[in-house]
Design a protein around this nucleic acid. Structure first.
Lengths: 227, 227
DNA sequence: CGGCATCCATTTTGATACTG
DNA sequence: CAGTATCAAAATGGATGCCG
């Protein structure tokens, strides 16, 4: 919030003063998987006009959460990237995502937009650090027409937009198949078995992939009983 | 958001549809330390009018995140409490708080309101689970005219408004002293030594208290370099 | 493509007055 | 207390049009 501060000496309130306005956390979600151009951001965020997007980006720049960069050749086009402070909002965004996976997902509504990148960030939200001890591998995901990769190194994970340089394994599937995984209609292993998804690369890496991500058991928000 | 949904099939966006409106996450922050009455909530949230507070509470009820309760005798007055789904927003709120402690706190501004309860939630944000292995203790904090207690049980912590039933240790200090701890002017141990804070109770519990909370090293948001 | 400026209809909010 | 009713101010969204 700009003018409209909560005016509380409280860490949560101060954070929400900076990133609590409409669209801001979703903008950060977009940038968490790597730098994005103005038009890419607008394309991902239906309903956000150029004026408001411009204002939000300026705000993030002014507050030191993002900065303008020039993409390396051959792109050479302006883009926005998170600063260190901005990147560190990752855990907060992922915590909101984890809650949503458990309590708010259900079926996709007819009007809802979907981008594979959101789901890949969801992978990061479901990442089980314990299951990745001793593992060092790069997985490339090709979902619909987007590609993402996850770099896993002994309990840490990094997910970035775009193809990987030297993936140990590559997993390919359609948007719909990926949606089915989120909705827990089937597991990745099942999708591969039925031919809905294709996996190739290092056998050991593919084998360990099975246990790396753990979706929370969905809870029902309609009553207050423990899940 | 009510009418104004992001309309994205994304866990983060769906969560923000539910709790991303102005005041909502702060309302949840208040309820994370126990049930609160309508007027208490309003008193904690300067600037939130009765109309909007009423609307927000109705929304939380409708979405199954909070419910109306009747406080046990002798109070017997209506109050609002979080459901299981609401309580599970705790990690997300604490993640925002942790970020704020590191990147957004600095000095208290003249106009900012402050309540000890926020700081005690901050304690929970700083809780170091590893440092609490094998510890089982209840600490009562009396800060200014408010009291809170933290129940620690082997790596888990629960912080609630109000005095504890059987505290193992009690720590008393003024608001200003507590503010000094947050601003890292001094540590709790130093405050006790200088007489600004008073501690009593089980010696072992008091000794272990020292290592339980770990404030993040403040970062500077004005540039993008690592802290 | 990458933005900023402007205009306008609609929502959201903030503040206050008022009722059981 | 615990809210409801009301109204003015601000934020949003959508549609442009403009410029490098």
């Amino acid at each position: 919030m700009d003018q409209r501060t909560y005016d509380q000496y409280c860490a949560t309130a101060r954070t929400l003063d900076l990133v609590g306005e409409r669209w801001t956390l979703l903008l950060i979600r977009e940038l968490l998987t790597g730098p994005k151009r103005f038009s890419d951001l607008q394309a991902s965020l239906r309903g956000l006009g150029t004026g408001l997007l411009s204002a939000r980006l300026k705000h993030l720049e002014h507050e030191g959460l993002a900065h303008k960069v020039t993409l390396p050749p051959p792109a050479r086009t302006p883009a926005y990237a998170l600063t260190e402070a901005g990147k560190e909002l990752g855990p907060a965004v992922l915590a909101l995502a984890r809650w949503g996976l458990k309590w708010a997902m259900g079926e996709r509504r007819a009007t809802e937009t979907f981008h594979a990148g959101w789901a890949v960030l969801g992978l990061r939200a479901c990442f089980d650090a314990d299951a990745a001890t001793g593992l060092r591998a790069v997985y490339e995901f090709r979902i619909g027409d987007e590609s993402f990769h996850a770099r896993i190194d002994d309990g840490t994970i990094e997910t970035l937009h775009g193809p990987a340089q030297h993936p140990d394994a590559t997993i390919t599937m359609a948007d719909e198949t990926f949606l089915g995984l989120t909705a827990q209609h089937q597991t990745l292993a099942q999708a591969i078995e039925t031919g809905a998804a294709f996996a190739s690369g290092d056998a050991e890496a593919l084998h360990r992939l099975r246990g790396l991500f753990r979706l929370p058991a969905p809870g029902s928000r309609t009553d207050g009983s423990p899940a």
